[in-house]
Amino acid sequence: MLYLYSPEQQDHYHHLLQEALPDWSIACWPQEINAEAVTHVVAWKPPVNFFSRFSNLQVIFTLGAGVDKFLQRDDIPEHVTIIRLTDAGMAQQMTEYALYGLLHFQRKMDIYRSQQQNTVWQPQPTRLAKDTRVTILGLGHLGVHVAQTLAGLGYPVSGWSRHPRNIEHVRCVHGCDALGSLLQETDVLFSILPSTDETQHLLDAKHLALLPKDAALINAGRGTLLDEDALLNLLNQQHLRFVLLDVFASEPLPAAHPFWRHPAVMITPHVAADTIPEEAVAQIAANIQALASGHPVQGQVDRQRGY
């Protein structure tokens, strides 16, 4: 039996799953069931101890790309396989988000917005794509799509990851030792890194200060990557010109947080890339079939790496 927990879109997901998996018995929270019959769960943000009653649970499919909240739980046994979404319509959305922030900075829309508020008519010097160096932190499925798309638009793109990668038209570097020099050569830094022990506050005061003066930062990965106090200090020193933030250490972002009112910061409420139900279910169904036939699956989580 497959059990579904997605209160916000439960009926829609149930219909799609039943259509994609006609031979499966599929139940939805809070439907009463025989918990011992549940072997597979599809869920997003389930409550505390949700998984404890499923004694025969084998696989959890998450309805998102991030799995840090699942790995922090104590109700998921080590033997249970966790499979995250690798795209499900998110790659195109994430690319659009990155491109919006990049163009906002490159075409100086932040400056023009400030000028408008002060009734100033003052054209700024033109900056071309070829003169705007972009660095992508995180070269998973989404990061690769962003990097290749921006490179195709004429931007010089570099990508950083923990392990070596080879991506056409993208300069790839890896390892903590290479990060510092890369940041010094970056005009727009876009992060799509997951939350792991290694990425906690990776962008701290030391690393953020390596970005050139008047650079831009876009964070659509996880809020824990960023030392928010260090970022505020650099913004107040006018070291960075523009910041676009979609994720935060605490969500929703508290109303008293200074990011809300800072003139150099643009905030979105964790919407850079939403899961598209139809594509998510198609991926889940394909992975269920792959597991049944002993074939590799997309998105299987390595608990040691944290993604």
Rank of each mutant, 00 (worst) to 15 (best):
V80D: 07
I82S: 01
R84T: 06
R84H: 06
T86I: 12
D87G: 03
D87L: 04
D87Y: 00
A88S: 12
A88N: 06
G89D: 03
M90T: 08
M90V: 01
M90E: 03
Q92S: 09
Q92R: 10
Q92V: 11
Q93R: 00
Q93N: 08
M94R: 00
M94K: 00
T95F: 05
T95K: 04
E96Q: 14
Y97K: 04
Y97H: 15
A98W: 02
L99S: 00
L99T: 01
L99N: 02
Y100I: 04
Y100T: 05
Y100R: 03
Y100F: 13
G101T: 04
L102W: 05
L102Q: 07
L103E: 14
H104N: 12
H104G: 01
H104T: 12
F105T: 08
Q106A: 09
Q106R: 15
R107M: 10
R107L: 14
R107G: 01
K108P: 03
M109F: 15
M109V: 06
M109E: 15
D110A: 13
I111Y: 09
Y112A: 01
R113I: 09
R113C: 11
R113L: 14
R113F: 13
S114C: 10
S114K: 15
Q115A: 05
Q115V: 09
Q116G: 04
Q117V: 09
Q117T: 15
N118H: 15
N118L: 14
T119W: 12
T119Y: 14
T119M: 14
T119E: 12
T119N: 14
V120G: 01
W121M: 14
W121R: 09
W121S: 11
W121L: 14
W121H: 10
Q122H: 13
P123Q: 12
Q124C: 10
